[in-house]
Design a protein around this nucleic acid. Structure first.
Lengths: 127, 127
DNA sequence: ACTATAAGTATCATTGTATGATACTTAAAG
DNA sequence: CTTTAAGTATCATACAATGATACTTATAGT
């Protein structure tokens, strides 16, 4: 289930998008499976339907879902995307971001490793 | 040295802030050491001085630097911050973010580990 | 066939954030 | 004690995020 935080700095569209991405990565949503209609999810979250629609469209632009008028939005089949040098660099940048932050906040190496392993298990165990 | 990307989605203030944070975390800037004056850095980056000033103030709010009128901005002494449950959770969320993204982009577990170790070395080797 | 309903989409208004231009204040140097 | 160099405050503007509303397309029921 998705939960949004109106006080958070990250835009609502991104919050929704990211959480669905995590559900996809974790294998909680399988190819062909329908996402909730924009109006329903918007109602559940107390948000404008456009906000959800925009999240869906962002996901569609990434090839993760397929949306069609009148029919709904479903999870796309798993395209076999292969990471290139650029995406690898981007990942490194994002990781640096997280770890430098952790360092300044006083985390020890062991604690970081633990968090890393936990997260890794979430997305690579099954799926 | 700092480099900014005018086309990137992340605001200039954050780009500057994050890169200085990484320099601090990597031990490239030591306590007491001065940061460049806002006008100079702003000039180098081709950016308004307020943009740099705001980044500095954000860093000051985090206790990482100390700014004083007429004198300049210097790196703050290392406060011994201890991570609590909330910060640990936040770190987990950030890590999930990065790893779920990597998963969807087709990275394999081994590749992730490599990137993680490289980043870890950047911020925990020395310092 | 035809209508009703349910789905995504497009358009416009509004609000807030990011950035910049300019002026102000404080401290050090000559 | 004036000049210069530093951070700070104020205001203006452009763009992004969200919402209100209307539109289009597909399916279900009759």
């Amino acid at each position: 289930m998705i939960s949004i935080d109106l006080t958070a700095a990250t835009p609502l569209v991104e919050q929704i998008e990211q959480q669905i991405r995590q559900a996809l990565a974790a294998g909680e949503l399988l190819p062909g499976e329908p996402l909730p209609p924009v109006r329903q999810l918007a109602g559940d979250l107390g948000v404008n339907l456009n906000t959800v629609a925009r999240a869906y469209r962002a996901l569609e632009a990434q090839g993760l879902v397929v949306a069609q008028r009148g029919r709904g939005t479903v999870v796309a089949p798993r395209g076999s995307r292969k990471p290139n040098k650029a995406t690898s660099n981007a990942l490194g940048v994002a990781m640096d971001q997280v770890l430098s932050d952790a360092r300044l906040k006083g985390f020890r190496e062991a604690a970081i490793r633990q968090i890393f392993e936990a997260s890794l298990a979430r997305f690579w165990q099954r799926g």
